Computed example of a mutant assay.
Amino acid sequence: MSDAVSPIQILRMSGDTAVGTPRIVFGLFDGPDAVADAQSVALSVVEVGNAEAEPVWQGPAKNYSDYEVPYWVAYPTIPSPGFWGVTAEVALADGRTVSSQFTLEVNAESESVTIGEPAPLSENRTLATEPDISKLNSGNDPDPAFYQLTVADAVASGKATVVGFITPGLCETRWCAPVLNSVATVRNEVGDAANFIHIEVYEDFQALTYVPEMAEWGLQSEPYIFVLDGDGQVTASLPGPVSPRELTQALNQVLP
Rank of each mutant, 00 (worst) to 15 (best):
M1N: 09
A4C: 03
S6I: 02
Q9H: 14
Q9L: 15
I10S: 10
L11I: 12
M13P: 10
M13A: 12
V19E: 13
V25S: 12
L28T: 02
P32M: 10
A34P: 06
V35I: 06
D37M: 07
V48T: 09
A51T: 00
A51V: 03
E52G: 00
V56W: 03
W57N: 06
Q58F: 03
Q58E: 14
P60R: 06
A61M: 10
A61F: 06
A61C: 04
K62D: 13
S65Y: 02
D66W: 05
E68W: 00
P70Y: 03
Y71D: 08
W72R: 04
A74F: 06
Y75T: 13
Y75Q: 14
P76A: 13
T77R: 10
I78Y: 03
I78R: 06
P79M: 09
P79R: 06
G82C: 04
E89Y: 11
E89G: 11
E89M: 14
V90K: 02
V90E: 00
L92P: 00
L92Q: 05
A93F: 05
T97G: 04
V98T: 14
S99A: 14
F102W: 10
T103Y: 03
L104Q: 11
L104W: 06
L104F: 04
L104P: 08
E105R: 12
V106M: 14
N107L: 15
N107G: 12
E109C: 03
S110C: 09
S110P: 06
T114A: 15
G116H: 11
P118T: 11
P118V: 09
P120D: 01
N124G: 05
T126H: 01
A128W: 00
T129Y: 06
P131M: 02
S134D: 08
S134I: 05
L136G: 05
N137D: 15
N137R: 03
N137Q: 05
G139K: 06
D141K: 09
D141G: 11
F146E: 08
Y147D: 08
T150S: 08
V151T: 03
A152G: 12
A152C: 07
V155K: 07
S157P: 05
K159L: 10
A160M: 12
V163R: 02
G164F: 03
I166G: 07
I166V: 15
I166F: 13
I166R: 01
T167N: 15
T173Q: 11
P178M: 08
V183I: 15
A184N: 09
T185G: 11
V186L: 08
R187Q: 14
E189F: 02
E189S: 08
A193S: 13
A193N: 03
A194V: 07
N195C: 10
N195I: 03
F196A: 01
F196C: 04
H198L: 15
E200I: 05
V201M: 12
E203T: 03
F205A: 02
A207R: 12
E213I: 02
M214D: 04
Q220P: 04
Q220F: 12
S221T: 14
E222A: 14
G230I: 12
G230Y: 04
G232V: 11
G232M: 10
Q233F: 11
V234L: 07
S237H: 04
L238R: 04
L238D: 07
P239F: 05
G240Y: 01
E246C: 01
E246R: 10
E246A: 12
E246T: 02
Q249H: 04
Q249I: 07
L251Y: 00
L255Y: 00
P256G: 04
P256N: 04
P256T: 03
